[in-house]
Amino acid sequence: MELVSPAGSWPAFKKAVDNGADAIYIGFRDETNARHFAGLNFDDKNASKALNYARSKGKRVYLAINTYPQTARWSAWQRAVDMAADLGVNAIIAADIGVLEYASQRHSTLHRHLSVQGSATNLGALTFYAENFGIARAVLPRVLSAKQVAQLASASPVPLEVFGFGSLCIMAEGRCFLSSYVAGASPNTCGACSPASHVSWKNTGDQLEVWLGDMLVDRFEADENAGYPVICKGRFIANDKTYHAIEEPVSLNSMALLPELIDMGVVAIKLEGRQRSPAYIAKVVSIWRQAIDAAKSNQPFVVQPSWTASLATVAEGGQTTLGAYEREWQ
């Protein structure tokens, strides 16, 4: 079971390697990756430094080129794929079928992982990507129950990677346009969900309002923890009821399922959070390293309360959930 860590900067990358990640995924400093935030990500010089460091420690590096290019800007994605091949990364992570096809034809030896943004939730889709683009691995969207993951793992033509910890997309990844509906930019086109440039906070005296563009996403009382306005975690009104109509601020944590996932033959666990700090990376990676090692040992696996407590401190809203892995959540 490979532990795959995010890194949005060189300091975060170093923390990931030093705290026990087996592989680290990064993105270039542009809209070709799904975490296109100001000040984040790698230019070719930094990417090269990261690769050298990873190699010297026997770790792998994956490059996310996982947004969907539009025709006028196609060449930027093509260049990113070429650059990934030149750098000699261990794999690219891509979703767009044009990008996947280009990579498979131009750089056939460059491994291709299907990004979670590719929305492959069933055997037919996995077969499609495997037969057409020779993908070496697929990352599953966070919409499947544990039972469905097991069924897929037993039949999939390619090894599977699943999400372990981090921000929880409530919608099938790659098929959510809530952000562009309200704020123009979407994960698919720009690599941004609820872009910071569109967020505004208004103090109304006893309440704090958070807006995305012209839409009120939530109102917080003084004693509430005011979260970032991703649309799916706001409070809205339906039939006179004001509530978290889609989901509460919460992070995914599938650690309790680790032994099961190992038994299923899932090959890798992905942590979310290229936008998070080096301190977050250090904490989350070291805890997951311990957990994976414990789950692989001959001892019965127990999620240590100290791990859960520590992860909760970096979770959205201080809470974690098994998400769709558990049927009741759905």
Binding site: R142, V143, L144, S145, I170, M171, A172, R175, C176, F177, L178, Y181, C232, A238, N239, K241, A245, I246, E247, A324, W329, Q330
Partner: peptide, 13 residues
């Protein structure tokens, strides 16, 4: 159609 989820939001309501 802006999004699809594993969760049913009508049932949640």
């Amino acid at each position: 159609p802006l999004a699809y989820s594993a969760r049913c939001f009508t049932a949640r309501h």
